[in-house]
Design a protein around this nucleic acid. Structure first.
Lengths: 135, 135
DNA sequence: CTAATTGCAAAAGCTTTGCAGCGCA
DNA sequence: TGCGCTGCAAAGCTTTTGCAATTAG
């Protein structure tokens, strides 16, 4: 689906700020971006956009299911395109690198443990804070 | 260990605000408290304390290992006494209830998956957002 | 045309910090 | 006594909101 169609499907008018932000999220270089980061990249690229618009668009994208927001312990939100396949994250405490991973076994145990307590899972967040293994 | 000794061990002078905050954290009724929540409880109890002091004391407690801070997706930090036995949390999206749970199997898989990526775990946060099972 | 969208500036919410005075050891 | 601690007020950060001007459809 084109970006254009994606926005229309979400009931959003196709505007330049929205297209640019969507493109940034889709670009492979930095799949995890903060609002501030997106704003700065747009400014550097010569786009005229307000920080408030970035926040508004990201919120709309999130509600439309286009992207999701993480709250790692960094003091600000981090956005990524809604993954086709669910995954979780490790954050390297030394480099700040964000590593994606999946673990079906863990998911299965999460379901089990929730059921034991009388609940069903709506969503979950799992972040491993890690450091590189010594060689 | 007495509260008094606990503070001294952390290199902190034994003061009224610190004792009161430590008592609140230890009280079984509300093991998960926000800075604001602690502040209000102290005011209601007739204690004279500043919100800034509550934040400072909680930060000191955290650095001393007395308590830990969680960042659930509520827009503010939540503190609890450092658990003797590690556990994770479920947050009920309907009632706001916080349920503690442990799952050794999950912990084991986390170690494994981190090692596969060339890292070792420093810390982790796992929060399941759940809703009650329909009967 | 007209409701949606935008940029700017102001404000809001949580948390931290500067500072002068107070209090524990 | 002396350094740590406290309360208050002010400032910092991320994020949200009000508003008038602009724009997509």
């Amino acid at each position: 689906m084109t970006d254009d169609a994606e926005l229309k499907k979400a009931g959003l008018k196709v505007t330049l700020p929205r297209l640019r932000i969507l493109e940034l999220l889709e670009s492979a270089e930095s799949p995890h971006l903060s609002a501030e980061g997106i704003y700065k990249q747009l400014l550097n690229a010569g786009e005229e956009v307000g920080l408030a618009t970035v926040y508004r668009v990201l919120t709309q994208f999130e509600q439309a299911g286009i992207c999701i927001r993480h709250n790692f312990e960094e003091g600000h939100g981090v956005y990524e395109l809604t993954p086709t396949h669910h995954h979780d994250h490790m954050v390297c405490v030394e480099t700040g690198d964000i590593i994606e991973f999946t673990c079906d076994d863990i998911e299965r145990f999460q379901e089990t443990v929730a059921k034991e307590k009388g609940y069903e899972i709506v969503d979950h967040s799992m972040v491993l804070y890690v450091k590189p293994l010594k060689k």
